[in-house]
């Protein structure tokens, strides 16, 4: 069974009396362990598509199933539990909580789940080690570079052992060298932990390393490449 199944998904936004059709009848299937990039020009619907897959937004119509769950039928609390257990998020602006250390930021999803502090600390340290940041575990985000913050963000996205990680333009705020490092970490985790990665990007460096490319234009999938 596919990890993600979208059937005839549409998403409309209402700006006053104007209706903006962000997605127009998307049919998409993504399997486990895939490393998928969604790309296309600005306003093509990349972020909207990722928001729907991440269960942070609802489609206007269509069927959306993630990890066997019909997302549209879930209550808000159930969606929260679903996101916490199944999905990891990596944001363009890192979105770390500034008053928490790197370790505490990584512990957050586990603590939201209700894990004990000691268990959360142990798991978080493991993930920080994977991204090479054990030395900076007690540093707050303000004392870290952009690349380091994004690696903390990756560790946070993975700490709950999700089936799926969604990354919205993860390298947009990073220099070339750091972007490469982040991409390599994501690829490695995809292969090692068999986690599905879906991300939106304009970054050619990232596009060169994906297995599957989905090109969006005007809210429609116009092209799919197998990638690498």
């Amino acid at each position: 069974m596919a990890l993600i199944e979208m059937k005839n998904i549409t998403k409309d936004y209402y700006l006053g009396e104007t209706v903006v059709q962000a997605l127009r009848g998307i049919d998409l299937q993504i399997d486990k362990k895939e490393f998928v990039a969604v790309w296309g020009p600005s306003g093509s619907g990349k972020t909207t598509l990722l928001n729907l897959i991440g269960a942070v937004d609802d489609p206007t119509s269509g069927e959306l199933t993630i990890a066997g769950k019909n997302v549209r039928s879930l209550t808000d609390d159930q969606k929260s539990e679903h996101r916490n257990a199944t999905i990891g998020f990596i944001f363009q602006g890192f979105n770390l909580v500034p008053v928490l250390s790197a370790l505490e930021n990584v512990m957050l999803p586990l603590q939201i789940k209700g894990a004990s502090a000691s268990e959360a600390r142990k798991q978080a340290m493991m993930r920080l080690e994977e991204v090479g940041l054990t030395d900076l575990a007690n540093n707050r985000p303000a004392k870290m570079s952009g690349g380091q913050q994004q690696r903390v963000s990756i560790a946070r996205a993975l700490v709950n052992n999700p089936s799926l990680v969604i990354a919205d333009e993860p390298t947009a705020n990073l220099d070339s060298r750091t972007a490469h490092m982040v991409i390599d970490i994501m690829r490695e985790l995809n292969e090692k932990d068999e986690i599905t990665f879906i991300f939106s990007t304009h970054d050619q460096r990232l596009l060169d390393k994906v297995r599957r490319l989905i090109r969006l234009e005007d809210g429609k999938i116009v092209n799919e490449d197998p990638g690498l």
Partner: peptide, 16 residues
């Protein structure tokens, strides 16, 4: 606001 959105995306419920 953005931090609230992040916490919600990570799975924190409204009552949280």
């Amino acid at each position: 606001t953005r931090e609230i959105g992040t916490l919600r995306a990570l799975g924190l419920k409204r009552r949280g």
